[in-house]
Nucleic acid binder design. Structure first.
Lengths: 340, 340
DNA sequence: TTGAAAGCGCTAACAC
DNA sequence: GTGTTAGCGCTTTCAA
């Protein structure tokens, strides 16, 4: 069906080897021969069989990204932004990107990582949403399989990562509210099994303490990172008296759920209750009121993570394999309608 | 490094052939032998080399999805939702999903499709955002390369697709506004090079005519599907007098940009000016005012597209290769604040 | 029930 | 400059 080197060789009357070298641009081929070969290749519509090349070269020129997602869908804008980053960086370096989704910590997921680490499925992996005692990191580290994580972890292995200083981000948010005069500040944390959930929660507790503010247990909730989860956590928080006057949410999606719930109560966000999120997803500026949040350059993080991985795969181990990015506070109306 | 069939064969003292058959579950292997082989395989941590298997089997068990995107990023939630659909369906059938991004109609994109069609890069492709005289469809059809499109086209080839009846969706929107008493209705169309842009525009013109309403040229704009594009088009529309009282946007993102611009003018969306979108992205319900729109079950469409492709790859050509889905109107506040 | 041999399409070491 | 040979790891006739 598709033309092979053999077809070209037969056509031109040379050996398969010569064709291979001519097309690969080796210098030890007579220009005349190369020309005839190139012509024939073009005429036959030759494209190399990638499987064959990969088997021979013992590399797939493919990167893997296993999305840890519960349920059938991921509506989390984080992933699309991140995929765009790694995808574009990968194609810049002629790598393909293989994407699949598996529930976090499922047998399914473990199997996928096994396959990657042992089956030459891909040349390297990108790991996101790092977890406490992350089994993925353990496995890959033990197999010395190339990978880069978005997120730190608490395991004994040292591994390359890009991460954002989540605790610092939360600190900015808390101090923003303190500066606005708030003292009754609530927090809706991401799941603490996730490392960034842990860091964000810790950042909240530390900054509250540093400012001499009390942490009311009823004002510290937890949500599953979705709008629905945010709304549910907000409902729980706000059913207690006295109410907090400000709510920091562990991510933007939960902040949107929170805003929605507050509005249902007939209260005014940014006036009666201040709200902030974390991530600065593209729509954060468009919801109403617009969302005060911490900017994470997800696209850029994706690119850097991917670039680092490609370096590692090609034996260029980075001098500094631990990138910790400094977050930026984005003040919008949800924290105070009067601002701006 | 990684264990191969040969390693197991040496270990157990049988031939590679026997190991292969034992592991593949063939019945012509003595149970005792199989057991020894399985034990050895487990102990050595054997995982088949996928490249080798693929080369031999002449199939990759991989599906390709080339995202047509301008610029460095795709913040369009459509893609993440769609990828989730195809990704999950693919993994259900043990297919991998290869994702890459290329600018529509670029040389780059053409090359990627060539590679797919001729280089045994993937077993089949999913094509989205079909275009007028779509070169991708032409190429794949001529090579009889398995693919399924999300969207129809105007080319001479007959090909399998899943699509939504965009014209019908717009009809629902126009008649919704007509029922609310609007007569001055504007439209911000998606690029007409895109087939759904064409259908949506046509749906608008037809329904306006059917209702005896004038189509004012200044009230028909076009945007690039982004918030920014929507805001720009809205600005152009609203600079004319008289102003329209309702604006139908070709997608939700543009509707959000439009809403934003209207609010900047100090006007009230759903009161001074009614706005509607198209797609029902997850956040449509969360923006303020919530967005009247046409629901497209993107996730489900992704799944069906993918399922159809897998059927085709495996020689099960569908009885009906043309799925046209009926859209649903979702009425929210942006079309009329008074409505629930 | 098992093994030998061939071949998927490509690359690379080595000879000529 | 070019060809011969071998081999990547696997599956699959075909014999034994």
């Amino acid at each position: 069906m598709a033309a092979t080197l053999k077809d070209i060789a037969r056509e031109v009357g040379v050996s398969v080897t010569t064709v291979s070298r001519a097309l690969a641009g080796y210098s030890d081929v007579a220009e005349a021969t190369r020309l005839r070969i190139q012509t024939a290749a073009a005429r036959l519509g030759y494209h190399p069989n990638l499987q064959a090349r990969r088997l021979q070269k013992q590399r797939t020129d493919t990167l893997g990204f296993i999305i840890p997602t519960f349920g059938p869908r991921f509506s989390d804008p984080f992933f699309s932004e991140f995929i765009a980053g790694i995808g574009n960086e990968a194609s810049l370096h002629d790598y393909d990107l293989l994407v699949s989704t598996h529930a976090p910590d499922s047998a399914d997921e473990a199997e996928a990582y096994q396959r990657a680490a042992r089956g030459r499925w891909v040349d390297g992996l990108i790991v996101v949403r790092t977890r406490q005692d992350d089994a993925r990191i353990k496995l890959l580290s033990e197999h010395s399989f190339p990978f880069v994580a978005f997120g730190r972890s608490n395991c004994e292995h040292d591994f390359p990562f890009v991460d954002e200083d989540s605790a610092e981000g939360i600190r900015l948010l808390v101090e923003h509210f303190v500066a606005l005069g708030h003292t009754k500040i609530a927090f809706i944390a991401p799941p603490s099994g996730l490392m960034f959930g842990h860091f964000r929660r810790q950042g909240f507790l530390d900054t509250m303490a540093a400012n001499g503010l009390p942490v009311v247990p009823e004002w510290v909730g937890e949500g599953d990172m979705s709008q629905r989860g945010g709304a549910a956590a907000a409902e729980a928080l706000l059913s207690h008296t006295p109410r907090p006057t400000a709510i920091i949410c562990g991510n933007d999606l939960m902040a949107m759920g929170t805003i929605n719930y507050i509005q249902q109560l007939g209260l005014k966000v940014g006036d009666d209750i201040a709200v902030a999120g974390f991530d600065d997803i593209p729509l954060a500026a468009y919801v109403s009121p617009s969302l005060t949040t911490i900017h994470q350059p997800i696209y850029e993080i994706g690119r850097r993570t991917c670039a680092m991985l490609i370096d590692i795969i090609n034996g260029r181990f980075p001098e500094n394999p631990h990138h910790l990015l400094t977050p930026t506070l984005i003040v919008r109306k949800s924290s105070c309608l009067a601002i701006d």
